[in-house]
Design a protein around this nucleic acid. Sequence first.
DNA 1: CTGTTAGCGCATTCAA
DNA 2: TTGAATGCGCTAACAG
Lengths: 339, 339
Amino acid sequence: MVTIKDVAKASGVSPSTVSRVIADNPRITEETKKKVRKAMKQLGYHPNISARNLVAKSTKAIGVIMPSSANTALQNPFFPEILRGIGSVIHKMQYSMSLSTGETEEEIFAEVQRMVYGSYVDGVILLYSRVNDRITNFLREKDFPFVIVGKPYDYETAITHVDNDNFNAGKEITKHLIEKGHKRIGFIGGSRELFVTMDREAGYIAALQENGLEIRDEYKIHTEFLKSGGREAIEYLLSLETRPTGLVVSDDLISLGILARLEEAGIQVPTDVSLVSFNNVYLSEITRPALTTVDIQIYELGAQSAKVLIEKTKNKDEPAKRIIIPYKIVHRDSVSEIE
Amino acid sequence: MVTIKDVAKASGVSPSTVSRVIADNPRITEETKKKVRKAMKQLGYHPNISARNLVAKSTKAIGVIMPSSANTALQNPFFPEILRGIGSVIHKMQYSMSLSTGETEEEIFAEVQRMVYGSYVDGVILLYSRVNDRITNFLREKDFPFVIVGKPYDYETAITHVDNDNFNAGKEITKHLIEKGHKRIGFIGGSRELFVTMDREAGYIAALQENGLEIRDEYKIHTEFLKSGGREAIEYLLSLETRPTGLVVSDDLISLGILARLEEAGIQVPTDVSLVSFNNVYLSEITRPALTTVDIQIYELGAQSAKVLIEKTKNKDEPAKRIIIPYKIVHRDSVSEIE
DNA sequence: CTGTTAGCGCATTCAA
DNA sequence: TTGAATGCGCTAACAG
């Protein structure tokens, strides 16, 4: 391995001068800079990151923490997409990205501890927000820089987070259905522990109320993604005497499963029932019918969270921020007018 | 930050003893170990990774490099799944995982250089294999530990790689169609630059030949995933006077697009045309109809590549290996008997 | 079994 | 503008 000393020797200067050249210190002559740089190139010198990190007390690395339900949740195209967004700014800032690998909550917690205590990373992005989350609490207590993608359970004003306005998105997309003449509208959501689900559902309810429509509990179901449970839930919904003509589904991936169930049951979308959902993941374009859905700008969600986190790692005193990424409804073919 | 010295002072021993306790050196009394550990706990000591890496000349980190066509390729559930596989063993071995963030080939190349020269990582996993790839060549020249998921372009016996037997998988799944009575069988694949595509196609051709079926060039199309191109390609195929009754599609995600196109065209699967594909990504279960597909065990692909890479980083002299992950055909509803 | 010493590669004081 | 010296936190010789 070629070190700073080798370069120093080869270019006839001291190690500290070489170090200054690397940092492009303005107090070094252009002349000696050239000389040193030439030597660096010739010897194939590259700074050793560990050594630099040790003295700089910073790693220029960001830890990205996935939710623990890795097996199912990770299947959601949401993650690759947000990783892309995060990656884009991380790359631009010359940072690197360390991904969590644990499967259980326990494992992930241990991992975050290592990241924090061992100075693996300068900051952490949490790709989920769960009720009363150990990791969140830990990070808060340690006053370690982190941001949440989504809404924090508590200390909302004290924790920097990047989110959509899921309440209004839910309200608006439900309203869209109402405007199309639908009066019996169901809601199908993922885990109730997730804020996204709760917020979108609240928006759905608000839209119904504002329009004087009845809120029926049997129209609301919560199902863990596309697993077998989904099938029964939807069958139940369809077995109702007066079944809904419109469905608000909290995630495109769930919609995909719903579409399959509906087809099995011989129910046509959008002829027999209209369906809207959220995320606008690439899949929603190729389903049949293509989905009318809320584009939440996942990539942007990721990019912004990385950006604000890096700012925070550079200046610990940055105040906590809330950043709301705008959504927009993308109209496709899964909604029809009624009556 | 609490260091080894603080612990040493607190427990009345020397720093090196503390270091030995951390390494669980057998030459240290259980008694002093206990004492030291107690002090560590009380002070909340955690070893600093950068310092350790500096002297150990190892980071216990693995770099995972995504293909450059991140925008499209990353959408494939293949990646989250293989990341899970890699993550599982990385986690077990107490390593960490650094993900590439570059978008263009250029950017990624620069990133890999940083990883290698800066000693960011001990080894690299390449999640693609492209014809005449700069990164592969670079890694080879530098003799830096790496593995390829897929088949290397050249130096096949010198480069450790983890792959499926895509040729035989292609052959077998095509045979399945033939056994069901299909005689006109088409092939739809992704980029021709990718070995997977080539191998699967070769298997398809071999199956036709072995069964004395005609190989028609107009039955073979290559389309970049689900983009607009796919639409035209499939329309062309369907416009043929004698169109195929069976389709071998090189990737479940492409199949998803194909299914949509076929439905648009009023063609029923599997009644009018049968379809088989590869990967057995979770999606293939929820498409309509559910896909008969080759399960290539993506998770295992990832796990094995991480395992063999870590071995290699620990012992540079490990010989190059080829590891073939077995596949198996999963029969679902997209194939029907003919005649 | 444990302590002392040195050094990993780099950045940064302080002098010159 | 540059060099010498020091230390980041840790591990590993070498003594004892």
